[in-house]
Design a protein around this nucleic acid. Structure first.
Length: 198
DNA sequence: TAGGCCATCTGGTCCT
DNA sequence: AGGACCAGATGGCCTA
């Protein structure tokens, strides 16, 4: 991963004498259309000499800065995705979830937890017990949201029940058998949940 | 080798 | 004007 970043970071600096179009043609386009190639050659020929005007330099610098920001933005997005992976129950085979799998799994995980709460509340209502937003059994049986503490609360947004769940749950890594309650939920099966759920 | 996944670059659009 | 966000394009890596 880091090597990839560093590679492209340096590649970012590998555009010392090319404007945007040139960089696209030479670096990205493995097989540009012949016409485009000719155009680019013409451009390059025309561009020799004084062509690297200050306007072009400014444009190039802006592009590089934009690339850098975009890279950071995507890194932030991936960090958030990693944090989400950390909160979700780990797979027994420890294969890293892909991005789309992470999102779908999170979706189903939240749904399953909501269902569990709903069912627990229903049962509490039947037995005459005081209705609990979060039943003790859920807190015992539910898998820990993550080993690195609770990131639910950091979102600080709409879901008011999540922090309570987190606060009551010791953030210890869960054994695979801890997820049995999730697998009882129809949608949940490790890796089998995914495509076409929503 | 084909297909999936990913990182990056890029230009366009919207927002501040 | 500059930054954030987005989608398309491209190439690399990995796996079945």
């Amino acid at each position: 991963m880091d090597s990839v970043f560093s590679d492209t970071d340096t590649s970012c600096d590998l555009f010392p004498h090319t404007d945007d179009e040139d960089s696209r043609g030479s670096v990205r386009g493995a097989s540009p259309q012949p016409d485009q190639q000719q155009l680019q050659q013409k451009k390059r020929r025309r561009g020799r000499g004084r062509s690297d005007s200050t306007a072009q330099v400014v444009k190039k610098n802006r592009r590089l800065k934009a690339n850098d920001r975009e890279r950071n933005r995507m890194h932030n997005l991936n960090d958030a995705l990693d944090a989400l992976r950390g909160v979700l129950p780990a797979f027994p085979d420890e294969t890293k979830l892909t991005k789309i799998e992470t999102l779908r799994f999170a979706h189903n995980y939240i749904w399953a937890l909501s269902e569990t709460i709903r069912i627990a509340d229903l049962q509490a209502g039947k037995t005459g017990d005081p209705p609990l937003l979060l039943s003790p059994s859920l807190l015992v049986e539910a898998p820990s949201p993550g080993s690195d503490g609770c990131s639910w609360s950091s979102s600080g947004s709409s879901s008011s029940s999540s922090p309570a769940y987190c606060a009551s749950s010791p953030g210890s890594p869960s054994a695979p058998e801890d997820y049995s309650f999730l697998q009882q939920v129809p949608v949940f099966g490790f890796r089998s949940f995914a495509p076409g759920i929503y």
